[in-house]
């Protein structure tokens, strides 16, 4: 299982699309590693600087419809090679969400009011996230503020996270 805990990158916008996560011109790369410098290069978000803000982060927290647009699995890969394996959002685009789980990565929905609360409590601060897959909890900590949120990881999604992907599962079964 991958690591899902560490410092949080807050992306305070809805509808962040796959072209913003990794522009199409880098899709000619054959290795995942080659995508590393280009993560979120074209993100339209005033306060965000990809050169400074990605380094050292392990978890993304954002708002609605993260990963909309293209089917490119390069979007999860670009996060993965930057050691970001977990994204929390109010909801995800379908293909992007499935790509995350197919790679053994976590794309977890939280209720919109929880996301709002997290942004108002933590977004302006250095925040550490601890994700516990076995108890399905996200604990955020910044200075003396600490909050724990439950999430629902079940069935197919959990089995993909725990088995590390869809290819071996399907080859054995079908």
């Amino acid at each position: 299982m991958k690591n899902f805990s560490g410092k949080v990158l807050f992306l305070d916008r809805s509808d962040i699309n796959t072209d913003e996560i990794i522009p199409a011109k880098y899709l000619t790369e054959i290795t995942k590693e080659a995508l590393k410098p280009y993560l979120l290069e074209d993100l339209k978000l005033d306060t965000f600087n990809p050169e400074k803000d990605i380094e050292g982060k392990a978890v993304v927290i954002t708002r609605e419809n993260f990963g909309c647009g293209s089917s490119r699995e390069h979007a999860p890969w670009a996060l993965e090679v930057n050691d970001i394996n977990a994204v929390f959002a109010a909801n995800f685009a379908r293909i992007y969400r499935q790509n995350m789980y197919n790679c053994g990565m976590l794309a977890m929905e939280l209720p919109e009011n929880t996301i709002n609360e997290i942004f108002s409590k933590f977004a302006s601060k250095d925040t550490e996230a601890k994700v516990d897959i076995s108890s399905s909890t996200l604990t955020l900590e910044s200075g003396d503020i600490k909050e724990t949120y439950n999430f629902n990881l079940a069935g197919f999604d959990r089995s993909l996270i725990e088995s590390g992907g869809w290819v071996d599962y399907a080859d054995k079964k079908y």
């Binding site: 293209s70 089917s71 992007y96 790509n99 869809w166 399907a170």
Partner: peptide, 29 residues
């Protein structure tokens, strides 16, 4: 492995874009 695969639904088909891993399993199985 292309999001605009939804185009083919015009023929009364279920047609969905998928990522590389789903495509890989599609090719294999």
């Amino acid at each position: 492995g292309d999001s605009h695969t939804c185009t083919h639904g015009a023929f009364g088909a279920f047609a969905a874009g998928v990522g590389t891993t789903d495509l890989e399993v599609g090719i294999l199985k």
